[in-house]
Structure formats: structure tokens, C-alpha cells
Simulated assay, not measured.
Amino acid sequence: MKFQGAVIKEQGVTFAIVVVKKHIVDSQHQSDEAISSFMPMFPGMPVALMAQDSRGIPKYRGRRDIVNFLANVHPSQIPWQEYTYR
């Protein structure tokens, strides 16, 4: 499985962000499951999720400090890359 994600280091915190479908971010339960499933790809890092609505507006789910930081960053500023999950 391939997915879009990024690793960001900001203010001494290194974390991962993964693009998922909006219905996952909209559900606390599905978000928790998705974060858990991506954690092995990013050992030792907190994982946040990002989805965009039909207008391209991002919505995030994850640790509050990370979500608050990402809310002030335009998605085009994130160093996205493609990952392969086995």
C-alpha cells in the first residue's frame, strides 16, 4: 500500500503526518486505528492525520500541539513524499 506522508521537525519535536480520507479524520475511533496502524512506519514519532474537504481545506487529527501547529501551515509547505506500507 502506498500513501502520502511527511516527517517534520519543529520546535524540537519530530513527528509524522499521513494523508487519509476525510471520513477517517471525521471519526475519533477510525483516526485512533489509523494512527496506530501507521506508527510502525514512523518508530518513536507521534503520528498526525490530514484530510482535505471538497474545497481543499485541511483537517487534522492527532496530538493537540501538533494539530495546532499544522493548522497554521499551508499544506503546500509540507515536504510530502510517497511511502510504501507493507
Rank of each mutant, 00 (worst) to 15 (best):
31 S>E: 00
3 F>V: 02
22 K>L: 14
37 S>P: 03
43 P>C: 09
8 I>P: 00
24 I>M: 00
41 M>T: 04
38 F>P: 04
18 V>P: 02
56 G>F: 01
39 M>Q: 15
35 I>A: 07
78 I>L: 04
73 V>G: 04
1 M>W: 04
20 V>E: 10
13 V>Y: 07
77 Q>M: 12
6 A>R: 11
32 D>I: 05
44 G>P: 07
53 D>A: 13
81 Q>T: 09
60 Y>W: 10
53 D>W: 03
2 K>M: 04
11 Q>E: 14
35 I>Y: 01
53 D>I: 06
82 E>C: 05
55 R>D: 10
51 A>R: 03
72 N>K: 10
73 V>L: 07
77 Q>K: 12
26 D>F: 03
5 G>F: 06
75 P>Q: 12
56 G>I: 01
19 V>R: 11
79 P>N: 01
75 P>D: 08
68 N>Y: 03
12 G>K: 06
3 F>P: 01
79 P>Y: 01
25 V>K: 01
4 Q>M: 03
79 P>L: 00
77 Q>W: 04
51 A>M: 06
39 M>S: 13
21 K>E: 15
70 L>Y: 00
68 N>H: 03
56 G>P: 02
46 P>S: 14
35 I>E: 01
86 R>G: 08
36 S>R: 12
10 E>S: 11
58 P>R: 06
62 G>T: 09
20 V>A: 08
30 Q>A: 15
48 A>Y: 06
6 A>K: 07
14 T>D: 09
61 R>Y: 15
82 E>S: 10
83 Y>I: 08
74 H>P: 03
55 R>P: 03
58 P>I: 12
39 M>H: 08
72 N>F: 09
66 I>T: 10
75 P>R: 14
85 Y>H: 08
55 R>Y: 10
76 S>G: 02
46 P>R: 13
85 Y>R: 11
18 V>W: 02
80 W>E: 05
44 G>D: 05
24 I>N: 00
23 H>L: 07
23 H>Q: 11
76 S>P: 02
10 E>W: 13
74 H>V: 07
40 P>R: 09
40 P>Y: 11
15 F>I: 00
48 A>E: 05
79 P>D: 02
47 V>K: 01
21 K>N: 15
